[in-house]
Design a protein around this nucleic acid. Structure first.
Lengths: 227, 227
DNA sequence: CGTACCTTTGAAGTAAGTCAACCGTCGTGG
DNA sequence: CCACGACGGTTGACTTACTTCAAAGGTACG
């Protein structure tokens, strides 16, 4: 009960900024039918959105920023399952309770949609059913792809990560990493040292340029650097 | 088109036995509501059920045997995403086309259910929606768990694999491996040599008994051998 | 301007991969 | 019936890629 309240408060009453309730224009990006649903909320970096074990009441959609889902282990070990960027959904990959935790790596706007109302909608609109399945399926396919990645070498993992980032965040020629080396390492199953060394190696091989430690330019032919 | 026909033929006309088409009664409340749906079929070991790139027309349910889903790479490399045992569903983890291939590791009975009819059903029965979501979600969670596994040591991977097998196939005290060492290795992201060595190490440590190379007994406390 | 955190770099250690040979089992055919 | 060959599994010696431990830049923020 209090747990639930906590979630709702976190969603409805963001602590960092006023919960500016923007008037919604019409479906801006994809027009997936859920654009006008739910409550917009602001989350500060690293402010928990939900934790593993909590009841899964909501579906979330990133409006701006970047959200990570992860599992904590004893010994301070943390594995990051996925990063979600604007336009992408998360929080549906659970039965009744969340199996992972979620928080943003930068200040983020996140739309919060009640699962209950989604199911009600799904009952009378087959398109919503399809959308829910699509969201889950997409997440599953990403997880499978990630799985394959974890079996490859360090350079392959890092390059694929950068390429994926470029494909999902259309930022022109430049790729900005919203997350730390630790986050990348925890996502790719490497150490921060190996990630750092791999970046250096890629730069020396002219596969990338590093404007700062968080802003890269990917050169043509970088895909060939997947071992 | 011919590809599609090929699938249907594989599904409807099993080569090993007669495709006995049982009359379909109404959905009985016996299990998950899909028990009586679809067409039963028999597949010989390694006979393709579907291949990556083919249109995803069906949902499948294992009745007996064991089915694997996998991705082939150039160079003869193969990664096995999952094994499915009796009572479990597969083939839904796709949009319009399959992203993985599937075939049985032993002769298997598989129930074949048209996705189209499932969606139709879902439109008038919210319980079916929930079931479809549950199937996909369960697959996703297994994939996530598997992901975490791939980041651990070899011994941990092998032990977790055995424990998972015991939990899913209630075979009494004994665990039978329907698949080869290569399949296990391709699933766990190891080499067959490492898998073999790990089994030997576990046997020497009295964590398991090996009746044959395919039939094990897990000792109490084997869970502690996860590093 | 200093402190704290993030990132990079270096040197040494280790787990798993690779290459190669051997063993056991099963099925076939002389 | 035994001999053979094929295949799956086991074991050994060596190599390699990544980790671990350690320390030194960079950068941002009070």
């Amino acid at each position: 009960m209090s747990m639930q309240t906590q979630i709702i408060e976190a969603a409805i009453r963001p602590p960092t900024r006023k919960p500016v309730r923007r008037s919604q224009g019409k479906s801006s990006r994809s027009g997936d039918g859920l654009d006008r649903l739910g409550t917009p909320g602001e989350f500060a970096a690293y402010q928990k959105i939900f934790k593993a074990g909590e009841p899964a009441e909501f579906l979330y959609k990133v409006e701006s920023g970047c959200v990570r889902t992860y599992t904590d282990f004893d010994g301070g070990l943390r594995r990051i399952h996925a990063f979600y960027y604007p336009g992408e959904y998360f929080g549906l990959a659970a039965g009744d309770t969340h199996t992972v935790s979620a928080d943003p790596v930068t200040d983020s706007s996140v739309r919060v949609i009640k699962r209950q109302s989604l199911m009600a909608r799904a009952a009378r609109d087959i398109a919503v059913v399809r959308l829910l399945l699509d969201i889950t399926t997409k997440d599953l396919q990403r997880t499978q792809t990630h799985n394959l990645l974890l079996l490859k070498g360090a350079q392959d993992r890092v390059v694929s990560f950068l390429l994926d980032l470029r494909n999902r965040k259309q930022n022109g020629g430049e790729v900005c990493l919203p997350m730390s080396r630790r986050d990348i390492a925890d996502h790719l199953g490497l150490t921060i040292e190996t990630v750092s060394r791999t970046f250096t190696k890629l730069r020396n091989a002219s596969a990338i340029s590093m404007l700062t430690s968080r802003r890269f330019v990917l050169r043509e032919g970088i895909a060939a650097f997947r071992e």
